[in-house]
Nucleic acid binder design. Structure first.
Length: 641
DNA sequence: CGTGAGCACT
């Protein structure tokens, strides 16, 4: 290690080289706050080594103050410089003090190997070093990060014996630990026993209820708590997002801005809000959030850029997404991934591939999600050879072991690309149990290609497996028989399912009009204008049929209804209701954007084409897997989805 | 030397 001048360190670590660090640190010496501040600013081991070198030049290693040695150990360990941390920890004349143990345990808890913290904790107990409140705090945090509930309970027991459970930090760490594992009642119990509660305790408790899925309880506690801060709000908003309650998340955000001006929204909140807009396809609100971020001059990190790109892509504005992507210069793997996935779902497979190889050539390693995005892009653009090449080389080129979702994508690629037999072979030989998604995409390919023989073979295969205990197979099987019109078999499967809970995701479509998101369920009864909307829809469908653009197609209906009832069920699919509202409330010629939670059915797809031609409207439908842009009677998916 | 939050996905 060679010494580095103070000035170059300050240039390295601060944006302003003539900043306060140089003068203040030389005046106050090493134990002054600026040095520990500086250590925290280091984000790589090599930066840390430079600061370290600078310290050694000014004082021999053995005389480094203990607290500084602790900071260094902690920083080295947490940045992955385990070897350096270990040298500072045990190659000194004096035995490591409790402070150094704690630094070591804390440092490891932040790495990808937090179990090392627990190993050290165990070791110190074995050689008779008495842990203190700091030790317990770090050890418990390590248990959450390590994902070991058992070890956490064990540490909790030790903390109780030694009386440290009543320490503020240890107590908070424990509440957070139980909340992390969704054990809201355990977290509540600890919370109730705490002598003092602060914003950390409350926030962790709320997080526990959110994780456990009890949003109502989380909301109650949130209302009760004294002074929620930005992190508390982030937990609540993220809670709504994680339970797919996107409109509630946006409502909560508006409430924060309007009723609580003292709390300033932070990065996590903006990311969640943009994500909610993305899921809803709420372009106006997404734009508004974007404008708000710019208005308050919020520093846009790569996370914010990623969320913006994702939002614009999922709201149908791939052009805006690209613009942001091109202008941003410190892209990380997430930024690239959201752009690649966005291009893929818009059917711009070639461009997704181009970006993907550009990323690779920059020496950045794509991860599993990036590969999923690019494979998905290939499958939606029919780039079978390119997709196969990427899938076949995932492990040896990028070290990513394909998971079930990669297989799903690959099978989708093969079956759409005209090789359903090959896809079925992959399904039979893949190293995991195929899930519903995979069967569904195989079968839909058989249906599109009219390959009844293979379809029947697959259904038989599933029937064989469904006789086992997998109840998910039954629902799928019954739907499959229904889609082939084999109602006697449907009845048989349904009978064997009696008494079981069937989880049926209802179709749901969203349309945003003047910044208000309208949600429709299939055969919706709840929208205040539902009567008018249905009348409008009837009129639209009559006009389409009259002009020869649309014939009701009832194959997507999975229930055994008589024919007229089927026509009705298809007619009231949520996306048709949404498009009717769009036609009623927006000006002629403006595009209509709809977001749907399931895949669009053939009947709706045909109807949308008709509407785009007859009413001269561009209609953009985002379904579960991609974008469909309908224009003059055609769709960008080329009838392939 | 401390405790709480977020994104990309078949």
């Amino acid at each position: 290690m060679h010494p580095v001048s103070k000035r170059s360190i300050s240039i390295l670590l601060f944006e302003n080289p003539s900043g306060a660090f140089c003068t203040s640190s030389s005046r106050r010496g090493f134990s002054s706050p600026p040095i520990s501040h500086l250590l925290k600013k280091c984000s790589t081991v090599s930066q840390l080594k430079q600061v370290h070198a600078h310290l050694i030049v000014n004082s021999p290693p053995t005389s480094l103050p203990s607290s500084l040695r602790g900071s260094l150990i902690c920083s080295y360990a947490s940045l992955g410089g385990v070897a350096y941390a270990a040298i500072l920890f045990d190659r000194f004349p004096s035995l490591p003090s409790i402070l150094l143990w704690n630094s070591m345990i804390q440092g490891y808890s932040k790495t990808t190997a937090p179990q090392q913290s627990l190993r050290l904790f165990q070791q110190m107990l074995l050689i008779g070093v008495t842990p203190d409140d700091y030790t317990f705090t770090f050890a418990i945090t390590a248990c959450s990060r390590y994902g070991s509930f058992k070890s956490g309970e064990c540490v909790h027991g030790l903390a109780r014996k030694s009386g440290f459970v009543f320490n503020q930090f240890v107590g908070n760490a424990l509440v957070s630990f139980y909340s992390f594992f969704s054990r809201s009642s355990d977290a509540q119990k600890l919370f109730d026993e705490m002598p003092l509660r602060d914003v950390f305790s409350w926030t962790s408790l709320i997080r526990g209820y959110v994780n456990a899925g009890d949003l109502a309880a989380a909301k109650e506690i949130f209302k009760e708590m004294p002074d929620p801060n930005d992190v508390t709000w982030a937990v609540v908003i993220a809670g709504y997002v994680s339970h797919h309650r996107y409109s509630d998340a946006l409502r909560c955000f508006r409430d924060l801005l309007q009723q609580h001006p003292k709390v300033k929204p932070n990065e996590a909140i903006f990311v969640c809000v943009l994500s909610a807009c993305a899921h809803l396809g709420a372009l106006d609100q997404g734009r508004w959030a974007h404008a708000y971020i710019d208005k308050i001059h919020f520093r846009k990190s790569s996370n914010i850029y990623t969320a913006l790109i994702d939002m614009y892509a999922k709201c149908g504005r791939i052009d805006s997404a690209k613009e942001i992507f091109d202008k941003f210069h410190s892209k990380d793997i997430l930024t690239w991934t959201s752009m690649i996935s966005g291009l893929g779902m818009h059917g711009h497979g070639q461009e997704a591939l181009r970006l993907f190889y550009q990323l690779v050539s920059l020496g950045i390693k794509p991860d599993g999600v990036t590969l999923l995005g690019v494979l998905n892009g290939c499958s939606h653009s029919g780039l079978v050879d390119e997709g196969c090449h990427i899938f076949d080389n995932m492990i040896h080129l990028w070290g990513v072991v394909p998971k079930i979702e990669h297989y799903g994508c690959f099978i989708d690629l093969l079956s759409r690309g005209g090789c359903p037999e090959k896809a079925f072979e992959v399904v039979k030989t893949m190293p995991m149990i195929p899930d519903i998604v995979i069967w569904r995409c195989l079968l839909s390919a058989c249906r599109i290609h009219g390959n009844v023989h293979l379809g029947q073979q697959i259904v038989d295969h599933i029937a064989q497996m469904a006789t086992g205990s997998h109840s998910g197979g039954h629902t799928l099987l019954s739907n499959l028989y229904a889609s082939m019109g084999q109602w006697d078999k449907v009845a048989k499967v349904r009978k064997s399912m009696e008494g079981r809970r069937i989880d049926w995701a209802p179709g749901c479509s969203c349309i945003e009009i003047n910044g208000v998101v309208h949600e429709f369920l299939s055969a919706d009864k709840f929208h205040p204008l539902i009567k008018e909307i249905r009348e409008k829809l009837d009129e639209v469908l009559r006009r389409l049929s009259g002009e020869g653009y649309y014939i009701p197609n009832t194959t997507p209906v999975l229930f055994d209804l008589v024919e007229e009832e089927k026509v009705q069920a298809v007619a009231w699919h949520s996306e048709k209701l949404a498009v009717a509202l769009g036609l009623m409330t927006t000006e002629e010629g403006t595009p209509i954007r709809i977001t749907k939670n399931l895949r669009i059915c053939e009947d709706c797809h045909a109807a949308m084409k008709g509407v785009s031609e007859v009413y001269k409207r561009e209609i953009v439908v985002r379904d579960r897997s991609r974008f469909h842009t309908f224009k003059s009677g055609n769709c960008t998916c080329l009838n392939y989805w």
